[in-house]
Amino acid sequence: MSVAAEPLVYFYVPGYKPNYIEYAMTFYPMNIILCLEDGTPEEKKLEARYVVKNALQEFSSDSEHTLIVRVNSVHTPHWEQDLEELVPERPARIRLPMVRTAEDLRQVERKVQDVIHQRSLNYSPSYEVMIECCEAIFNLGEIHQASQNIYAFTFGGTDYFDDCVAKGLVDPALEVRKAKQKLGEYCRSVGLQCFDTTYMAYRDLEGFREDCLLSREYGFTGRSVIHPDQVAVVQDIYGISIA
């Protein structure tokens, strides 16, 4: 009997690496994010689109794995091509990085609807909106109001930190914590799911555990991971283990 993935763990896989995707598909029920954005180098964008498209076709009947595609941000030259190629494959959800304003989200939705109409697709996408800069935190309510199809908000810690540094803020790490707190509180107040950022030091499981505990307090309901060892920690802290 197949079991659907719980909305707790989101496993990132670089879109241009078919063997990594294949490996992730051997995991127990899991949300797998096929990443076309930061996980794919600039010169591999085309190749990644092709690989991800094939993966979505190949594993379309796999009911145990939820395949989510993280496309490139609207502030890059790649996002429209990403959507044109991948919306027809009907990924379970689309993760949208670096949404700064409500208009960014509306722009994506318009493009997705265009593709759906052009191809006469029977598809109602939902979005995981990534909050990755100070502007987005400021515009959070407006971004939320911009679409009926938001499945969750997610936080992008590295980009948020970089944004704080670029803005010359004195303590970027503190700003990141404050932003996470604000995002968590907002999602809790409106009953929306909220997923925390990746933790890159994947061998530091103790540090990861502490970070997850704090994040849960803030209101996050799940987390993105980059290594299988991190999965059990997330399941343990954010929900009931599937074991």
Partner: peptide
Amino acid sequence: VQVDPIQGKRIS
């Protein structure tokens, strides 16, 4: 052959 590294129960 690949073993699910999380549960260690399933092989592909």
